[in-house]
Amino acid sequence: NITNLCPFDEVFNATRFASVYAWNRKRISNCVADYSVLYNLAPFFTFKCYGVSPTKLNDLCFTNVYADSFVIRGDEVRQIAPGQTGNIADYNYKLPDDFTGCVIAWNSNKLDSKVSGNYNYLYRLFRKSNLKPFERDISTEIYQAGNKPCNGVAGFNCYFPLRSYSFRPTYGVGHQPYRVVVLSFELLHAPATVCGPKKST
């Protein structure tokens, strides 16, 4: 009989979030998941669920729940959905087409922007091929755009693959930082360890 609440607040209220290319994953298990708490945590810009209804979450049980978190800019949030393409979905964080879970995003301009520009958040701009779903690539190998090998040196047709967002508070919403948490629900042929409040007794 599990009584402890799932530590969603640790994920959502973390002081620092990860850069999207090096997104963070927390496995959540053996706890009571009260998803209604999430609705009250922040004024969400996005709370979209796929393959599951957000209002039914509190009635369900899962084997595992994974919470992935990272920062992107406002106009990239739409890429965090099944079947999307674009720089983020292709080279940084890719959801599977049959994704079961929820994408939660909110504006973090007050936390993640600086007047002089916050350069701490990076994204991958160049990659030889698209990522597979939930693949994480943290390599910093020089990207070869031409025929000549780069031998690890940046220059003509040889690019450092990561680029930094420079978040400034005066930017338009599309270029402001957004914190994203992706909850993916895993149903294996194994005992369910993460249940809503109704199912945990």
Score class of each variant (00 low, 15 high):
1 N>D: 11
4 N>C: 09
7 P>I: 09
8 F>G: 05
8 F>Q: 04
9 D>H: 13
12 F>I: 10
12 F>G: 05
13 N>S: 09
14 A>Y: 06
17 F>W: 15
17 F>M: 08
22 A>K: 11
25 R>C: 00
26 K>H: 09
36 S>R: 13
39 Y>I: 13
40 N>F: 09
40 N>G: 11
44 F>Y: 14
47 F>V: 15
50 Y>D: 00
51 G>H: 10
53 S>A: 12
54 P>L: 15
63 T>C: 08
64 N>S: 13
65 V>K: 05
65 V>F: 12
65 V>C: 11
70 F>G: 01
72 I>W: 01
74 G>Y: 03
75 D>H: 10
76 E>D: 07
77 V>D: 01
77 V>T: 06
77 V>K: 05
78 R>L: 08
80 I>G: 00
81 A>P: 00
83 G>L: 10
83 G>C: 09
86 G>C: 02
90 D>M: 09
91 Y>H: 07
92 N>A: 03
92 N>H: 03
93 Y>F: 06
95 L>K: 03
97 D>M: 13
100 T>A: 07
101 G>K: 02
101 G>F: 02
102 C>I: 06
104 I>L: 11
105 A>H: 09
109 N>P: 01
109 N>T: 04
109 N>S: 05
115 V>E: 10
115 V>A: 12
118 N>L: 04
124 R>W: 01
125 L>A: 10
125 L>I: 10
131 L>R: 02
133 P>F: 06
133 P>V: 05
134 F>S: 09
136 R>Q: 10
136 R>P: 03
137 D>A: 03
139 S>V: 05
147 N>L: 06
151 N>P: 07
154 A>I: 10
155 G>E: 06
158 C>F: 01
159 Y>H: 05
163 R>M: 15
164 S>F: 06
165 Y>R: 01
166 S>Q: 06
168 R>P: 00
169 P>K: 05
169 P>I: 04
169 P>H: 05
170 T>Y: 04
170 T>C: 03
174 G>L: 06
175 H>F: 12
179 R>S: 00
179 R>D: 00
181 V>G: 02
181 V>F: 04
184 S>R: 08
188 L>P: 12
193 T>M: 12
194 V>L: 11
195 C>E: 08
195 C>L: 07
197 P>I: 15
